[in-house]
Design a protein around this nucleic acid. Sequence first.
RNA 1: GCGGACGUGGCGAAACCGGUAGACGCAAGGGACUUAAAAUCCCUCGGCCUUUCGGCUGUGCGGGUUCGACUCCCGCCGUCCGCACCA
Length: 879
Amino acid sequence: MRPERYNAREAEQKWQKIWAERGTFTTRNDDPRPHYYVLEMFPYPSGRIHMGHVRNYAMGDVVARYKRARGFNVLHPMGWDAFGLPAENAAMQSKLHPAKWTYANIDTMRAQLQSMGLSLDWSREVATCDVSYYKHQQKLFLDFLAAGLVARKKSKVNWDPVDQTVLANEQVIDGRGWRSGAVVEQRDLTQWFFKITDYAEDLLNALDTLDRWPEKVRLMQHNWIGKSEGLLVRFAVDRASVPKGVEAADEYEIYTTRPDTLFGAKFMAVAPDHPLAAAAAARDQKLAAFIEECKRIGTSIAAIETAEKKGYDTGIKVVHPFDPNWRLPVYVANFVLMEYGTGAIFGCPAHDQRDLDFVNAYVLGVTPVVCPPDADPATFTVTDKAYDGDGRMINSRFLDGMTPKEAFDEVARRLAAQMLHGRPQGKRQVNYKLRDWGISRQRYWGCPIPIIHCEACGAVPVPEKDLPVELPADVSFDAPGNPLDRHPTWKHVACPSCGRPARRETDTMDTFVDSSWYFARFTDPKNERAPTTPAIVNRWMPVDLYIGGVEHAILHLLYSRFFVRAMRRCGHIGMDEPFAGMFTQGMVVHETYRTRNGEWIAPADVKIESGPEGRKAFLIDGGAPIEIGPIEKMSKSKRNTVDPDDIIQTYGADTARWFMLSDSPPDRDVIWSEAGVQGAGRQAQRLWRLACEIERIVGGARPAMPAAFSEKALEIRRAAHGALARVEDDIEKLRFNVCIAAIYELGNALAAAVGAIDATPVADDLRFAFAEAGDILVQLFAPMMPHLAEECWEVLGHDGLVSEAPWPVCDRELIVTDTITIPVQVNGRKCADLTIERDADEEAVKAAALALDAVRRRIDNKPVKKVIVVPQRIVNVVV
RNA sequence: GCGGACGUGGCGAAACCGGUAGACGCAAGGGACUUAAAAUCCCUCGGCCUUUCGGCUGUGCGGGUUCGACUCCCGCCGUCCGCACCA
């Protein structure tokens, strides 16, 4: 009987229904078994899922299903990161209310995710835009406020004067607002901040404990926190140099990490928004214009630092701390950041590239003060490449001959003892690049900040009994500005403290706040009284494995780490770190296609023909030739996206999942290709046929385990248990592509064994081996292609579900063989294989290797100098 | 600009702690089955040389360490990602 083709669409719906009815993936908090929490970053409900989601969730699902089979009580929830800008943009464009838009998207995307057959506990679903979620977030805000973790201060924003709104950095294009095209201004706004810098040292130190995080993510966070040890140095102003009418202070403080290079100083520079810049600009129109120009670059550090180094000489001079006769000019420079240090620096061009570029543009001269070990102090010069290495101090008076480290300490010591205006002129200072987390957003679609502003009482927290502060539903998006701010009634309330008329805070929270604690909420999402239930959250957390894109490696993960610490301080959770294990997966990329006149064409509209001369693309409609462009991240603008729905309709979810996991290592980008999906689809059919054929050979009742096995049966068992051992190891290490290769190999081995059977009544030992190997094969691919696996499991005669079956036990004795084959090299080049007993001693291996014909030929009677034997690995003969 | 990664056949890749480079898959070519197609199965498949046996060469480029280097070290080149209001 020929097995029929596997019908993915029918089978997938059938098994999804069965899983749902049986509650196979519903997780109980009171289950006593060891627990495992696997979580993928929840999606923003943008409208439809994309291939990046498919990849992300397929990976998490493999781990969830595998751990479940291994006897763990697995928590694998899903929710929606549902607040954010796109909903408001949609509201402006299509007059659809953000809530309507968002919930409609959630419904669509939930259905899409469900069609993927993910083993998720949907009963724990949360959406951050739901009052039932954000009311707890407001409580957390109030608790943080009470714990002293919230601050109110000014910060700079990109202001679009036409749209009357704050713009995200990505919305500022060449200094103009993306929608209005108006020149963007920088404005100071008083905003709410979480004091993440209070935890800077702890967040840095604790990185060492996160040994199941990718090294690169820890490094990125390390650099982001950016701890530096330096010196605060106060420079006296040369009063004579201050122009009339300029209200300069008597001194200005700079921060430097290289006080050792103080004798190489050529200038002082301050940020465009430094008080000194403002003071000097009051009497200097050109300077005022320069400062304006700097502000137009925007607030993003990338833009500021990429811009050409420019400065403006204020004319003011400061006095060198170690020489009262030495004057340094003070510049306003576009590369000095007000947010870092004191917003002022001294510039030493010889040993800092930025300073050197600057000095070369303004002809201030360069004096090297650190001489590299291999250079001659008399001739060493710096022209266009700053030297930032170690060496000995030169041209530095009392520092000469010291190492930079010694010089640093000496300068720190002297300046601490030297008085300026009655205080020590220098002070050691630990500095962090990390800034406090500004959470205020002048937007509607976010979690309202539960504060009431009262003229008499100031900023008053909303009393807990008045929570939640709910977003008003009746808002309009047809006017510029924040809809909450211009709502006729919402913001007008009585002050909770004095009862007089007051107004609500109309800023909402950054959406990063929403995603900084959802993982904790999932452990008891229905708790109406509190954000978490400590006994429950402390059992589940930290998350054992968290999977998401590298793009979140810094901000989201750092904010979450801070948030959990803050929640701990307020008694909501009992640990510091949210994620014990972390994995960052790569992107899904695709070829791009363009017509002759440069129009982007979607893959679905392209037909590819490949032959010996390579691949050619044509438009399906009309057959016009299409140019195949570079492979890039899937994006709407280049139209190189593939809709998961289409793929699932055509090939089935299993095929899509399998392909997402197969070709590329999970942390690298994967190229989506039609041919690749087809290959995955063929493999699904191949596995289905194989299961049917194995069942035909085993035939009904399974034989008991026989006492002895024929060599043929042993080979099958070895293949199965060998694959089992590899797959276990690979899934634990998330090496899904290698894991799939092992499954292919087992499939190929079993197909060959099936093909070698000629007579149908088969001996019991072989029948046992086939039945066992068939079961193992199906269980191995069940985490990746769960629907097909259920179908095969049924064919193989099992009553229950493979999703509920315990993982097979690997018989490691089967994998270890008595004899092994190792390579033999002569002068590091392989020339023969040697098959020998596994435990043969070194002398025996050496003798056997030298006795091989191919080895003797290669040695060719030359004297053997040395023979290296690495046990069970390799033999190398050196002649 | 700063920070982080990556680079191996026609393509995606594998190679565990420095020990057989190219497992597994895709594409391609050849063959079997078929009236034909699809599906399926078998064979070949880094490059150069050789009738065969086999030999040489080869992991972005240039050096180095080592009996032995995709792997370690130094210096380049190229590509991608993040940079604080996108999520």
